[in-house]
Design a protein around this nucleic acid. Structure first.
Length: 286
DNA sequence: CGGCAGGCGGTTA
DNA sequence: TAACCGCCTGCC
């Protein structure tokens, strides 16, 4: 069977490692060639990028999406990958007069904030609390395989959607035991019940009414699942940046939010991702 | 073995 | 409303 590959030339400010490993998503898997395979919007795809001039920082290149028709691209991937946004402009704005941000943006130059499915981000970030990335990924795949509907088979692997709120609302903690969600299992079930009863959340206030969703998780969901680009999630890593590199008291999250509002404004979510990815990798390398 | 990982809910004062 | 504590699980 011939595989459809959709190609977009002259793409700037996009690099798969930065996009898929900056911590915003958990269902994309790195392949040997550096491309990523995953499922979103009921579509399975592989995403590859080739720089025209080697690995030039921020240089333009060719984006190739496999298992994707022109319609898939126009109707879904373009928006999902946030390709219509001018990241060059946004980065220049964030970096103006900010040496820390300049380093962070130089490091994570190819980050794009994905426009993800709301329910998927709710599930993902409830699972993410007090947890590490490999295990978060395992939990999400396990949940999809246990209770999700099949999406299809791609390169020999079957992919599943996450279970819907309706499905999840009807199971018990014991049913979810194989997924090893720990104490988060009951948060998910309870949240599914709330969503079934009250509908999908529409803002941060609604999010806070869910179970297992505190300030940090709600900010992440707002940013990644609701398009709230000004949302500035503060986790331990961002708190470390804000205290270590911006000089704000490590425990004073209120002051950090105020700083973000004042200096990053509606670009707070992008700022947070650049800073988060930067500080995490600084830490990982030593 | 204790400590910790992209916090939260519950309980106290 | 701020401070503390326990929590599933897996890995160091």
């Amino acid at each position: 069977m011939e595989q459809r590959i959709y190609t977009i030339e002259d793409v700037e400010d996009f690099f798969p490692v930065h996009v898929f490993e900056c911590g915003q998503c958990f269902r994309w898997q790195r392949q040997e060639d550096g491309s990523y395979t995953g499922v979103a919007g009921g579509r399975i795809a592989n995403i590859a990028f080739e720089s025209y001039e080697g690995e030039a920082e921020g240089g333009s290149g060719r984006l190739q999406i496999s298992n994707c028709t022109e319609a898939d691209f126009e109707n879904f991937w373009s928006q999902y990958l946030d390709l219509d946004r001018d990241y060059g402009k946004l980065k220049r704005k964030l970096c103006r007069g900010d040496k820390v941000m300049r380093k962070a943006v130089k490091f994570g130059w190819g980050i794009r904030i994905l426009n993800q499915d709301l329910w998927e981000t709710i599930v993902s970030f409830i699972i993410s609390q007090n947890n590490n990335i490999p295990r978060i990924k395992g939990c999400i795949e396990g949940l999809a395989e246990l209770l999700g509907e099949p999406v299809g088979v791609f390169e020999g692997r079957a992919w599943y959607d996450l279970p819907t709120p309706e499905k999840l609302a009807l199971v018990t903690v014991e049913d979810l035991a194989p997924v090893k969600l720990g104490y988060r299992a009951k948060y998910l079930i309870e949240t599914a019940k709330i969503v079934c009863q009250k509908g999908m959340p529409e803002n941060v206030e609604d999010l806070s009414a869910l179970c297992g969703v505190g300030p940090k998780v709600a900010s992440c969901i707002a940013l990644f699942g609701m398009g709230e680009t000004g949302s500035f999630p503060i986790d331990v890593w961002v708190a470390r940046v804000m205290s270590g590199l911006y000089g704000i008291d490590e425990k004073n999250h209120g002051a950090m939010k105020a700083y973000a509002d004042e200096h990053f404004g509606a670009l707070g979510g992008f700022a947070q991702q650049y800073l988060f990815y930067y500080i995490r990798n600084l830490n990982a390398r030593k």
